[in-house]
Design a protein around this nucleic acid. Structure first.
Length: 920
RNA sequence: GGGGUUAUAGCUCAGUUGGCUAGAGCGCUACGUUGACAUCGUAGAGGUCACAGGUUCAAAUCCUGUUAAUCCCACCA
């Protein structure tokens, strides 16, 4: 017998171990079965599990578990990411704090050893935390972006892209983080609203506004709008401008990007330290003068300011300019957009630098254009990546993100992939010291073709997204043609947060279409971000974060999983808070107790489940048990291990005879249908809610209660049958508790049990309606009792005139008496209304309770009058519709039929209410 | 500046291609509970679906506009 409450801590780890050891997580590549693949977004190897991971794991596990039970070879490939900058920063911080040393002091080799050791120490933490969530991923195929194999994939694709002229080295303006001392990709730059000062400076014949007066030292031009009359005569001329380091020359250029409305309409141009200025300079043939170095300090060419950090230099230069009378005015508290590093929020310093870029517009010959449905094999990376979404080779859920994707892709500039940090994939490029040769190769070259052996490898490493862009296929063995790659790629679903659509999802599409001529995944499901109860982002500084591990410890993984996605829709943020998790803990416990009850009721039946027979056998019913177990609906090609079949499934099976059993079995089929449809459509929240409601409101509150009055074998079978299906349907959501209960009466494991398919022949709307009548009678009696303030333990009597439903009511007299608290129940087709009784009119029956004395007649009268008024209003609205020619002509027949039905029912109700009113 | 998203009960949210008198959980009110479950049960109160127009036989749902919140993209220096 199961204990009276579910204690997750007793079971979770044990069950996980059992699953993992059973091999259920590890699919094979059987060609007779269909694959279903999810690449797990790899958490940072040195990170700890946060709610973002938790929701990702919950959703992916739901998909994987369902597909596995449906008989797919379901592969969920886990792994970790080396997270270049993030990890390096972390280790640097630790070194500084614990040993007071910098990476430079340690040296490259030693530093990398330290990072490796640190990662190795941490990696296990995240692995264990992923397990804690109940994730049924294949640990035998676990990968790490820094594995040798994956390293090889990175080098391979770099070399191929170089050979295809998609990777080039260029001296260009890049986003530079002076703190990370590295370049950043465009999308790694964030724009933050900051307040600064706007300086109006006297600039030779101009007065112009700037937020960065120190860049004046790098100015080489002044730009105005071509149509600006004020400056028309000055365009093309050169002017001597007085400055803090003496006079310098600028040329006046005309450029449409200048806004004549802003400031004085003239803008200073600093091509080396501003992207817009740089573009203007390029268009107008203006030279570039770099004045800020990679430390964010003024360079040698800045005279007495050389070596000063920009902020300091600004202060001193402004002071000096003031002395020279060059400052016209200063606007304080000027709102401006500041570019900052997304890792450390340090202001970005645009500066010219020699870096490696991926050219997204360069055309190349794609290997297999037909695989992507491309007409032309000569395409650019950008075109291919846009094509696969436009052509719906990949579906993004929700689809509004298509628009975002296109916008981003359309505006994508060359991707700077080199990073000046040490922790990452080293760029496979060597430079010859004796000649100019640049060697790009898969292996370390021995010598240059000039004969020199003095080869130096590029110091830089690759952007972390370069390697994670390969994730769906590098993890399956690419560039080797492995069985796994052949079988599992393209993957089925990519499930991740919408916040990394650009960082990662778009990069994977670019890399996969290039390397394999394949999409990386068929569908992209983007979940929203989790916020706190007030809708605020979770952050360390606010201290409003919820630790998923703490929640698992407190409420169990099953409860946390449910709380993470119920009440959320894809792409939209949702809120999570402890009470919500607690609510689902209650649900898990409720389900536990339901199972406890069902199993308790059928203890004697259990024997027949464990025998040779594959199903629960009803007694005394004509069943052809030799045929029934193997002919049930099968999953695609193959199917999961078979589990005991119910007596109610399959052609030859017995149909249930008792009304309540017919009802719940019918409802179960509908539930199965709805859940299957919902999961097919990625409606995880809705489907979960459906199961929740069924379990609690139908199965527990009604069926379980009603079944207490039926001792038949069929009822026991039905309890088990419904339970068994619920266990399966709920397993993807709450895997632990369902597996534990399943183990109570099954020898195999639920994780590999066959997923239910609805048996349409068991859907019985007519019987459902009859059962609803019984339920309504009970509900109404309960309601009246409460209204009349009848002591709940007091039994009353009731008289029912059931009309054509009399037999049903008589048959279920015991249930009604039990559930409505009746002493006696007299049922007949019709009769005279009893004295001093209040009447309840239900569709198909009249119920009289001897409570007239207990209700205040005036109050009762008012209540009924109100009810009549409402009903009449309702009828009027229906009749309005029905008398509307347009409605009758244009509305679909079933809707009109339904309206007529409603009219009839309401009219009957009014009549009965009036009768009731007259009797008071 | 451009583009999203959101607005439904006190709170958190569902609500499918337009078609039951708009739902759930929490909270609230009253009552109850010794054998499946107080991590519970029964009954109930609570909504002008942000606002204004429009389309339609029919709008919470579609369209337009307004307001408010929020996010993403974009260096008016």
């Amino acid at each position: 017998m199961l204990p009276s409450s579910y204690e997750h801590k007793k079971y979770e780890d044990k069950i996980y171990k059992k699953w993992e050891e059973s091999g259920a997580f590890t699919p094979d590549t059987d060609p007779n079965k269909k694959p279903f693949t999810i690449s797990m977004p790899p958490p940072n190897a040195t990170g700890t599990l946060h709610l973002g991971h938790a929701v990702m794991l919950a959703l992916e596990d739901i998909m994987i578990r369902q597909k596995r039970m449906q008989g797919y070879n379901a592969l969920w490939l886990p792994g970790t990411d080396h997270a270049a900058i993030a990890t390096q920063n972390k280790v640097e911080k630790i070194l500084a704090a614990e040993e007071g040393i910098t990476r430079e002091q340690l040296g490259r080799e030693n530093f990398l050893e330290r990072v490796k050791a640190y990662v190795a120490d941490c990696q296990d933490t995240i692995r264990q935390q992923v397990r804690k969530m109940g994730s049924s991923c294949d640990w035998t195929r676990e990968r790490y972006t820094f594995d040798d194999d994956l390293n090889r994939a990175v080098t391979e694709i770099f070399v191929r892209m170089y050979e295809d002229k998609l990777i080039y080295r260029g001296h260009r303006l890049v986003n530079w983080c002076p703190r990370c001392k590295s370049t950043l990709a465009d999308d790694e730059v964030e724009h933050k609203e900051r307040q600064g000062k706007l300086y109006w400076i006297k600039y030779g014949p101009f007065v112009l506004a700037t937020t960065r007066p120190e860049t004046k030292l790098g100015d080489t031009a002044v730009a105005v709008h071509p149509d600006d009359e004020r400056y028309k005569d000055m365009v093309g001329k050169e002017y001597q401008i007085p400055g803090v380091l003496g006079e310098f020359t600028v040329k006046v250029i005309a450029d449409k990007s200048v806004n004549p409305e802003f400031g004085s309409g003239a803008v200073k141009v600093t091509p080396a330290h501003s992207f817009v200025d740089n573009e203007m300079a390029e268009r107008n043939g203006i030279p570039m003068k770099q004045i800020i170095d990679e430390d964010g300090c003024m360079m040698e060419n800045c005279g007495k300011y050389a070596g000063l950090p920009t902020v300091q230099a600004r202060k001193e230069i402004v002071e000096d300019m003031e002395k020279m009378g060059l400052i016209e005015k200063v606007e304080e508290n000027y709102d401006m957009q500041l570019s900052v590093c997304y890792r450390c929020e340090t202001p970005i310093e645009p500066l010219p630098s020699k870096q490696w870029f991926i050219d997204v517009n360069q055309k190349f010959d794609i290997a297999h254009p037909e695989k992507l449905g491309l007409k032309d094999k000569n395409v650019s990376l950008k075109e291919a990546a846009i094509h696969v979404i436009k052509d719906q080779k990949i579906e993004i859920i929700p689809d509004r993100f298509n628009k975002t994707y296109f916008h981003w892709m359309d505006n994508l500039k060359d991707w700077c992939v080199s990073r000046q940090i040490w922790w990452g994939h080293r760029i496979p490029v060597w430079y010859c010291e004796d000649c100019e040769e640049v060697i790009v190769d898969r292996e370390t070259p021995k010598a240059c073709k000039c004969g020199s052996e003095k080869l130096i490898q590029d110091e830089d490493t690759l952007d972390t997204w370069f390697s994670s862009g390969l994730w769906t296929f590098s993890t399956l063995g690419w560039p080797e043609k492995t069985e796994d790659l052949e079988y599992f790629h393209p993957t089925s679903v990519m499930e991740t947060g919408y916040d990394i659509l650009f960082f990662w999802v778009a990069r994977m599409i670019i890399m996969s279409t290039y390397a394999l001529s394949e999409i990386p995944f068929e569908k992209v499901y983007l979940h929203g971000l989790l916020r706190d109860k007030q809708g605020r982002k979770m952050s360390k500084s606010l201290g409003n974060g919820i630790d998923p591990l703490e929640m698992i410890d407190k409420y169990g993984a099953d409860a946390l999983r449910m709380a993470l996605f119920i009440g959320s829709t894809p792409g939209n943020d949702s809120r999570i808070y402890e009470e919500k998790i607690e609510g689902f803990r209650n649900f898990v416990n409720k389900f536990w107790n339901i199972s406890r009850f069902a199993l308790g009721r059928s203890e004697d039946t259990k024997v027949s489940l464990e025998g040779d027979t594959k199903g629960v056998q009803p007694q005394g019913k004509q069943t052809n048990d030799s045929n029934q177990s193997t002919n049930t609906p099968q999953p695609p090609q193959g199917g999961a291990e078979q589990t005991p079949q119910s007596p109610f499934q399959g052609e030859a099976a017995t149909k249930p005879q008792e009304l309540i059993n017919q009802w719940i079995i019918s409802r179960t089929q509908v539930l199965i249908k709805d859940v299957n449809k919902g999961l097919d459509e990625f409606k995880f929240s809705e489907t979960g809610q459906l199961l929740y409601d069924f379990v609690w409101n139908e199965f527990a509150d009604w069926y379980l209660e009603m079944s207490k009055k039926s001792e038949s074998e069929e009822t026991k079978q039905t309890l088990l049958y419904v339970l068994q299906n619920l266990l399966k349907l709920l397993h993807p959501y709450i895997p632990y508790v369902t597996e534990e209960i399943w183990g109570e009466f099954n020898e195999d494991m639920l994780i590999t049990a066959a997923w239910p398919e609805a048996d349409e022949s068991l859907i019985n709307a007519e019987q459902e309606k009859k059962a609803d009548l019984i339920r309504n009678i009970i509900k109404e009696i309960r309601s009246k009792r409460a209204e009349a303030k009848v002591d709940p333990v007091k039994k009353i009597s009731a008289i029912v005139f059931g009309g054509k439903n009399t037999a049903i009511v008589e048959e279920h007299a015991e249930v009604i008496k039990f559930m409505a608290g009746l002493e006696t129940l007299t049922a007949s087709e019709s009769g005279d209304k009893p004295e001093k009784a209040i009447a309840i009119f239900i569709d198909g029956a009249e119920v009289y309770l001897p409570l007239a004395d207990m209700l205040d007649p005036e109050k009762e009268k008012k209540r009924i009058e109100k009810e009549i008024a409402e009903a009449e209003k309702y009828v009027k609205s229906i009749q309005g519709k029905l008398s509307n020619k347009n409605f009758v002509q244009k509305a679909p027949a079933n809707i009109i039929e339904a309206e007529k039905e409603k009219e009839k029912a309401t009219l009957e109700k009014i009549e009965k209410l009036k009768k009731q009113l007259g009797e008071i």
